[in-house]
Design a protein around this nucleic acid. Structure first.
Lengths: 214, 214
DNA sequence: TGTACATCAGTGAACGCGCGTTCACTGATGTAC
DNA sequence: TGTACATCAGTGAACGCGCGTTCACTGATGTAC
């Protein structure tokens, strides 16, 4: 079942960059197994190394997991930022701001569907405490985490006059709730078997609801 | 750590109602440990019975878990229905319908906070397939699951003219997304440490957003 | 009403599993002189 | 430039853990005659 799929055997005694290799392996495990699949022993197997070698680089399983989670969160940030960039190019300020908010939502929902394992890993218990990883390859350009990107879009809404300033406070939580909830309905809930088109339509409707309702 | 806390030893060889006792024990485990804590061996320990005795009543761990989950879902339905009943007493039709929708949301959010373990168990992977348990003690009066209760409130909205009929279809998913997402932000997300008053205020604001945005 | 016996609900002991983690170790690296 | 040696990154073997599950069994129940 859990095939080892280790990389080609090393020729050197030292690995080179075991820490990165373990995170990479953990990321691969998370990708198609979610948080539960991030298993220290399997990560070392894939890195072609004895299980206890991991303890040179992580204090234990928990520490490895946190690193993997941070990386997954970084991947989500990158996905959102990619969507965001398209919207930021718009010239009309209001359209631009609205587009940005929708982009964050769309990026979030697409990522949840395209990278379900990472998504669930990113938000495994306690995930919201996690800082973005300093690794520039995984941190998106703006250096913001997904939550902060949402705030960024909301700020743009206020600046453009598309959102009354007195509704700005706490608006992240409302928008995030809606989108996060729908992501879970899609991943594991009643929308699990809904066709892609139906999901997309509901997603768009949800984003409109948020925009109107904020 | 996981203290056995078994009930007083049996005097009879036969247990009496082991099936119910195991579900009850599983429910207790879920209550303060979430879905992960529903462990077959521990449930038998608490029922004062050998581990394999469970196999007389359940095909395996999975089947026991499903039963526990169904019961947890039933408890949520009951909590929602209790809120719902208050709102149904209102005389003005529009106020009544609006009150019902808000009641479902409030019931959902309160349950998530008051019975976090059960809440997470009810929505553990694949939960939405689960039928309500036939056990009348756990099934709420209307015999509807939480999702259906939400639909019931939305129907009332349409009947009262508080929601355009053409927006009715799929409205469950939008409302559910918002409320479910906020429940998770509260349980495990950035609102984890928010004071109770702040949560309640955000919850009310979220429900208003849903109502306006639907 | 009493007895034979099939059926049912439990017991006791053991299994293999894969995990995270610890121990004492060895091979490789790089720095001081 | 060469050598001694501290330091670092890996190895190999083993641990205990608790789990779900299986096996052959025994005690209790209830039904047929």
């Amino acid at each position: 079942m859990a095939s080892a799929r280790r990389t080609q055997p090393r020729t050197t005694y030292h690995h080179g960059d075991l820490r990165a290799a373990l995170i990479e392996a953990g990321l691969a495990l998370a990708r198609d197994g979610g948080p539960q699949a991030v298993v220290l022993r399997e990560a070392t197997r894939r890195a072609g190394v004895a299980p206890n070698a991991a303890y040179r680089h992580f204090s234990g399983h928990q520490a490895l997991f946190e690193a993997v989670r941070a990386a997954a969160l970084g991947a989500l940030a990158q996905a959102i930022e990619a969507e965001l960039q398209l919207a930021e190019a718009l010239s009309d300020p209001i359209e631009r701001a609205r587009g940005m908010l929708a982009a964050v939502g769309r990026g979030y929902l697409s990522f949840a569907q395209a990278e379900t394992g990472w998504f669930l890993t990113a938000f495994a218990s306690g995930a919201f405490d996690v800082e973005l990883p300093p690794d520039p390859a995984r941190t998106a350009d703006k250096g913001l985490n997904p939550f902060e990107l949402l705030g960024y879009a909301l700020d743009a809404m206020v600046q453009a006059g598309a959102l009354p300033a007195d509704r700005r406070a706490g608006a992240e939580f409302l928008a995030w709730s809606a989108v996060h909830g729908m992501a879970l309905l899609i991943i594991d809930g009643p929308l699990r078997r809904a066709p892609q088109a139906a999901r997309a339509a509901l997603g768009a409707r949800l984003l409109r609801m948020v925009e109107d309702g904020l």
